[in-house]
Amino acid sequence: MLEVNDLKVHLDTDSGIVKAVDGVSFTVEAGKTIGIVGESGSGKSVLAMSLTQLNPQPPAFYPQGEILFEGKNVLKRTKKDLRKIRGNDIAMIFQDPMSSLNPVFNIGDQIKEAIRTHDKKMSRQDVEKKVIELLTDVGIPDPKRRINDYPHQFSGGMRQRVLIAIALACKPKLLIADEPTTALDVTIQAQILELMKDIQKKYGTAIIIITHDLGVVANIADKILVMYAGRIVEEGSVHDIFYRTSMPYTWSLLRSLPRLDIDESERLLTIKGQPPDLIHPPEGCKFNPRCPFVSPECLKMDPPLTERGSNHRAACILSNEQFEEAKQALIIAERKGVHS
């Protein structure tokens, strides 16, 4: 349904060209869920918005690649065509529900607008009915009354539900959720993720869920893409990513997850070093300044994605076996360090 080929999205800023997305390819199949995971600044949001060309141009521009939605290149569409895709075929929800609703219009009007934009003929009563239905679907209690309320009268979690209702208004084929739970409390996070699962079942929507937290996508994604410095560095099923990790960056991400079976003191809370400068990225493998397994080879060449199993690819010069050995050696060295 969606096929992204070698896409580059760069941003022309005062300090230079930010290579926010720098050669990304992936596909999304109808009804499936893709998780895109990466640290802050790895280019996830820029990638997400580029799929419907929502990034303001300038600064954004598209030097290379294509985005095929149902066979047609989104990058070549007219403004009018793009408007027809947005909201209707591909809908988005964003990170910060507190600021993503217009404060001066009530939520009923904001949902109605989503319906009306793509269906001008629907009668007023039907639109009204549809809004109530959507609000019920996303779990807003007492929707008939709340339809006239303004965004500031809702909590963060409820606002995210409203935004999901807006996104679902035209039964999109693809829903892109850019860190939908990051700004919310842990319990609310779980509820919103649950809601997204239910929605997928009911509406059959494909979902791209973007997060910096592997834990968020562990239960919901069919496929995970790990992004680093504007590139995909590993992709595979949840099982591949968690148990057959083939790329040091993914491994570092996993180690930074809170876990019950590891003593807090042994946990790497964050990955050492700074996320890379996307204006002047490092030579060779972009992860090399921070990689515990770096070798002289890594400074010379930027490894491409290579097959690591069926539908499992990773970008690292180490083969799975070499990586396994290096990992063991590192863990042993760390243990010694801790105990001595």
């Binding site: 419907t52 929502l54 303001p56 403004k79 793009l82 408007r83 027809k84 895709i85 947005r86 909201g87 209707n88 809908a91 988005m92 964003f94 910060d96 600021s99 993503s100 609703l101 217009n102 404060p103 001066v104 219009f105 904001q110 607008e113 989503a114 934009t117 793509h118 935004l163 807006i166 996104a167 208004a169």
Partner: peptide, 30 residues
Amino acid sequence: INQDYTRTVRAKGVRESTVLMKHVFANALI
């Protein structure tokens, strides 16, 4: 024009002139 809510409106597929004259304008009036 660069607020998150404006992005939400654009993501609905609303035309830019409506984005400006309705959503952006209403907020600028305050």
